[in-house]
Nucleic acid binder design. Sequence first.
DNA 1: TCGAAGATTGTCT
DNA 2: GACAATCTTCGAG
Length: 207
Amino acid sequence: MGRILPRDFYNRETEIVARELLGSVLECRTGNGIASGMIVETEAYIGEHDAACHAAAGRTNRTAPLYGPPGISYVYFIYGVHWCVNAVTREEGLPSAVLIRALQPLSGIRRMKDRRGEPTRDTNLTNGPGKLCEALGITGAMNGLALQRKPLVIREGPRITSDEIITTPRIGITRAVDWPLRYIIRDNEYVSRFSRARSQRAGIRPA
DNA sequence: TCGAAGATTGTCT
DNA sequence: GACAATCTTCGAG
């Protein structure tokens, strides 16, 4: 198993952290055991000047973790249906984070299937921010926690070279839609599917 | 206290 | 491709 990524890893420019999180391993330990997956898709949300970032509206109870120290989680509930998990970046007071959008399942796949209700294909287990939280059992109870200890840990994974990384505009947002802050591993079949249609509409060649 | 919006997903046409 | 499901958060009244 790789080493746990230290707090300093996150105390850098959000775009760099988002790229380097590709290939690392998100691990979640619940009462049911451990489930983990390799991160294959991320998005950067880079501060109050980023209209798509939750912190664009300023500091509120909800966005408080974004302003916290680097290397903690930011978990929020969206559309009354899904949880999404972020890793907070940069020093305290600078609200920015990396949204984890897709994983390639590594361990605890049986548990993931149980939580997700047996999807037809393994690629459908964690290929989206809401899906991966459901598969790993991540909820709001894990908001604002340090990512260096259980239940939520991110470990170093295989090194991903820059020519294996594709950059595209972010997905599913209504503001700052053109900012190229989404990072995916080229040719990985576990990236979220939404991307293809959206990318084509935006005139960007899909991976 | 109310209303609107939202970093999504699954289902139906 | 379109749309409903479902609920938390926040600002306005």
